[in-house]
Simulated scan of single mutants.
Amino acid sequence: MTTLAPNYAPLPIEVASAEGAWVTDTAGRRYLDCLAGYSALNFGHRHPDLVAAAKDQLDRLTLTSRAVGHELLEPFARAITSLTSTEMLLPMNTGAEAVETALKAARKWGYETQGISEGDATVVVAENAFHGRTTTIISMSSDPEARAGFGPYTPGFRIVPYGDADAVAAAIDETTVAVLLEPIQGESGVIVPPADYLRQVREVCDSTSTLLVLDEIQSGLGRTGATLTQDLAAVRADLTTLGKALGGGILPVSAVVGRSDVLGVLTPGTHGSTFGGNPLACAVGLAVARLLETGRYQARARELAPVLAARAGDLLAGGHVTAVRSIGLWLGVDVATRTGREVSERMASRGVIAKETHGATIRLAPPLCVTQSELHLMMDALESAVSP
């Protein structure tokens, strides 16, 4: 009998070591990792710069708590706000914590600056979104699997169809403090909205004095060919949540970045975290910022995007999948003749790690260090796995 809670159903692979885009299991078999920790491993496994930053910091200081300061906290905040063209950063640990922080800041901002009555604040969110699994976050979820059995739920959310800016506008009233969206819906299967969607939502938020909060925990930090996916739409959110790749695949690091007048409502005692902004996290986060400042990883995603899109198009033309969606180095595939689990297992037997999401959809997100030949290897395995 296992002593591990059964909240995951992993593939029968036990990883023992990894480097770059490849992992090796306990039996010595190598796999191309095309899940990449749900984009936490954008820079690959054990990137030497990130490992060196962590090792150096481990020899000096790992945790102070925020009861005192340390020499890396302000440099980390400056580096990430500079990278994202934002004003202020609030550090946390996990993506869900970053979303919760953004929600708290938005509500408090609404009460203090917009005259909304305490307890009445509402937030507009998108159908089929994924922002985490805390009780408050599942209260805005339309996914029965994530939501059922965990009530009572937190009120104050209005769910509208994703990709429909008119529906966002119709849901906003005098109680609305924010619109919370993913620029690309990752967990739902790499759902890409209409090209003008973010711009239109930005205009709606501007005209109604509503905050735009964009969850870039999966879509951000190079995955789609830009530092932030909102950059592709020439839009800047009022608050942006970051996570996953911010920790370089080494430890959990997350943050909310955005307007100083909004994050500034979180004064001493109103919000905090024991590990948020710890020295080890800041050391790794600074090294992540240095990698992204070169533009190399964003450029690689842009360069390989047409290769991935072309192979996905060929797959669709072959008739064994019903839809493909790609942006940068991110691909969602709806399977026609098998379950997503079956396809994942067949890909694993061919030396490629992928994972289903929502039954019949495969989500692929190889590390941004992947080569063109490795990308073809991934697509060859996928093509074989969906074929009879």
Results as ranks from 00 to 15, higher is better:
W22R: 13
D25N: 09
D25L: 08
T26M: 12
T26R: 11
T26L: 10
A27C: 11
R29Y: 14
Y31Q: 04
L32G: 01
C34K: 00
C34G: 11
L35W: 07
A36E: 03
Y38V: 13
L41T: 03
L41C: 08
N42W: 02
F43D: 02
H45L: 09
H47D: 09
H47A: 07
P48L: 11
L50Y: 00
V51T: 13
A52G: 08
A53I: 03
A54Y: 09
D56T: 14
D56N: 15
L58P: 01
L61V: 06
L63M: 14
L63P: 07
T64D: 03
A67K: 14
H70V: 04
L72R: 06
R78C: 07
R78M: 10
T84W: 00
T84V: 13
S85E: 10
S85H: 15
T86W: 01
T86E: 05
L89A: 06
L89H: 00
L90N: 01
L90F: 12
P91D: 08
N93F: 06
G95D: 05
G95W: 00
E97G: 11
A98G: 10
V99E: 01
V99R: 09
E100R: 04
K104T: 10
K104V: 13
A105S: 09
A105M: 08
W109C: 00
G110M: 01
G110N: 12
Y111N: 07
E112C: 10
Q114T: 06
Q114Y: 09
G115Q: 06
I116F: 03
S117L: 15
S117T: 15
E118C: 08
E118V: 13
V123L: 05
V124A: 07
E127C: 09
E127M: 14
N128S: 15
N128G: 09
F130E: 06
H131W: 11
T134I: 08
T134E: 11
I137E: 04
I138W: 02
